[in-house]
Design a binder for these strands. Structure first.
Lengths: 192, 192
DNA sequence: CGACACATGTAACACGTTACATGATTTG
DNA sequence: CAAATCATGTAACGTGTTACATGTGTCG
């Protein structure tokens, strides 16, 4: 539900043909998100079927598309709608950790620890990427902001993993003595 | 690519039948993520087709499933894999803002502002939800952590939106004088 | 008995994604 | 001329999701 709405949003600026939508989409996202042209055409057909777009008077041999009134309404709502609410997103990292938590605690802690390590590495990469983009001004706002978004998300995920670890350790301490929880890799270690 | 792997992970603890997987999945996620049983069966068939699961000797009239060796390998890798990398996720909020940014600046600022407002409201709701769960201890770790994850994500998104707004305003100031950028709703206003 | 949880499955559809085929036009 | 870009499309597949049909067992 991203390409679909994205195409609608692009068409709100005026009629365009399929290939133009592809290039517009990629330009708008700073070249970070590539789009297979074929998907544009299939998506346009589906949008036509749903009454959101219609054929616009063609200039030359090209098929041009325009928003219908319903389509315009749809985009209008889309701008204000908060994504990822209703239904709440089934996040894969969260699911993974939760499933790990319903297994043996030491395995769970291992998964959390490794996920955090990987995320920290990823974070460092993205920071370098962000710096690179910040220096080369020609890169455009879009690509820059995409990296920033990934950065902030990764940071949030790491914080969440820390939280998970705390909770597991607490729970382990609560059921202390017998079956001692393996506390591998002391939390907040030298990493970072 | 979450239900699929989730089922594999659950089967790693030993053979189960379809309905049991549904309940296990929902229990593991603290009841936050419901799962249509039908999806379990179709997913199991697809996993069988791909050689990740196979029929296990049935006790009574129920069909039991077990992991194959390939399936076990698959789960093993899944635990360590960082989700959302390769390919980078096409996040809808990010796309929305980027598309807004390629339009008129005042509309972009309006979208950013409204998204932030909605997210702040959502955040407040989730904080209350988190508190409620914290007080009622019977709720289980899982549901608790899910809410925390949503909370931290929302905070990260809000921070990112602030960043976007800054950049837009900066860009607007750079091209100062003629065509002045509308600076509606002073950042960091009385909200929150 | 009636409601509810347990249990299995099918059919249909949504969106995203890739690979492939085909041709016109531009440009080095 | 050859390669790249522009331009349109089709076919096939993958996962997620819902709705529906069907039957057993249990418990108040």
């Amino acid at each position: 539900m991203a390409v679909r709405e994205g195409i609608l949003a692009l068409l709100a600026d005026g009629p365009r043909h399929g290939y133009g939508l592809k290039t517009s989409f990629e330009r708008a996202t700073g070249g970070v998100w590539r789009l297979n042209v074929g998907q544009v055409y299939t998506t346009l057909e589906r949008l036509e079927r749903d009454g959101f777009v219609a054929a616009a008077p063609a200039d030359d041999g090209q098929r041009s598309w325009r928003l219908t009134d319903r389509g315009r309404d749809e985009v209008g709502e889309w701008w204000w709608a908060v994504p990822g609410e209703e239904p709440p997103p089934r996040d894969e990292l969260v699911l993974k950790i939760l499933l790990a938590l319903s297994g043996p605690p030491d395995h769970a802690l291992e998964v959390i620890s490794r996920q955090r390590d990987s995320l920290l590495t990823l974070l460092a990469q993205r920071r370098r990427e962000a710096d690179r983009r910040r220096r080369s001004a020609g890169d455009g706002l879009a690509g820059h902001l995409v990296v920033d978004a990934l950065l902030l998300r990764a940071e949030a995920d790491i914080r969440w993993l820390d939280l998970c670890e705390e909770r597991v350790v607490e729970a382990g301490d609560a059921g202390r003595s017998e079956e001692p929880v393996v506390r591998r890799r002391s939390r907040r270690g030298g990493r970072r």
